[in-house]
Design a protein around this nucleic acid. Sequence first.
DNA 1: AAATATTTTTAGGTATATCTAAAAATAATG
DNA 2: CATTATTTTTAGATATACCTAAAAATATTT
Lengths: 217, 217
Amino acid sequence: MLSKSEENYIKEIYSLEQKFQSDVNTNLIAKKIETKASSVTDMLKKLAKKELLTYQKYKGVKLNPKGTKVALSIIRKHRLWETFLVKKLNFSWDEVHEVAEQLEHIQSDKLTNHLDAFLDFPTVDPHGEPIPNKHGNFKTTKTICLNQFQIGEKGVFVEVKNDSDTFLKFLNKNNLSIGTKIKVIEKEDFDNSMVIETNKDQFRISENVTKNLYLKR
Amino acid sequence: MLSKSEENYIKEIYSLEQKFQSDVNTNLIAKKIETKASSVTDMLKKLAKKELLTYQKYKGVKLNPKGTKVALSIIRKHRLWETFLVKKLNFSWDEVHEVAEQLEHIQSDKLTNHLDAFLDFPTVDPHGEPIPNKHGNFKTTKTICLNQFQIGEKGVFVEVKNDSDTFLKFLNKNNLSIGTKIKVIEKEDFDNSMVIETNKDQFRISENVTKNLYLKR
DNA sequence: AAATATTTTTAGGTATATCTAAAAATAATG
DNA sequence: CATTATTTTTAGATATACCTAAAAATATTT
């Protein structure tokens, strides 16, 4: 049985692997977990001993199948709980992350699977991110980052890759939610900002925003 | 903010206070928490310093209002989650305790209160135990322990004061559930066992069982 | 490739929540 | 009421998950 701390390391390492498509190094993990590199080293040794990942001094780590399975189970729980909070308890999408961070560590397969059924086996969470099923499988719909779009291109906003309160509140304020149709009106080469059009509005957003919005053409 | 361990101490001390209507001593707590008396002493000092309880060396402890409030909040969460598991996720009453022990430590007033509303503000949990409302208030229906009943007396089984798997499974096996009408047919002075009658059956139960069943006349 | 900068690890320390064993206080008994 | 038994506390360890500071390895510059 893994501690909450161990689970959080596994989860963050998984998400860094996905993001960078490579082995994950100590400092990156330290930043994500908000701890010191030395603490990360300690933990990596422990997780390596438990055979959840492969660790080579100074070379970074890579989850092995056992570790990946753990990561997917935590992500599954996190996203199911987020869905529950939004769909059943009337939370808004910017309020669910912190609570789901706690709920994802509850250990009961029966609970997870019954919750899944209760929610009618959702495939995406309130942020559009895919929910692994009980076998760890999930469908990856090819979404394109808004910053890849050209002037004149249109798409539907289907996923957000940033769970932070402030970011989601910013989206709320600008009426940007999953399902919103977006058209690129202008693209500034200097700072990669964009002017986009929704059915309500036209306004400029910074690269920091375009980087976190994913669309379907 | 309290640790999971601190919360468990507060919860158990509260339940011992209710049970014995007196100050709670170290060994009793140790037995409940399944730890050593020395560990309990350490924790009591810590909780006293946090002003959750009054502790006098060798004299036992008593929760003060702040501690009682914490206890009721944990009990509230525990019982709401049990209700959720049974009513919404199709758990049976003998399967909910362990999971609720984890869920009761989730920290989010919004979650607790929205869950409460989602369940239509239940006043008792699946074991018939009262659920405190958000202010810590709950109605105590005067229930009588089955072992106080005389031969010929009838009542309705409304509460069970033992959350253990084995005990609840025993009740299931004998078709004893909340709402069951019970009549006392025989009472054995030697071992305090009873023969009881339900609408289905007549059978003998030991004192260990009668002690944990609470009825309304 | 030598010097410098950065990253990572090691060594040693802290707080939490446990433990064992011994000492101290309280309770029960002859 | 003195002795014995029980309960509780103290003292000193242990494991987890952190930390700081220094050393070692790796990467980047000049």
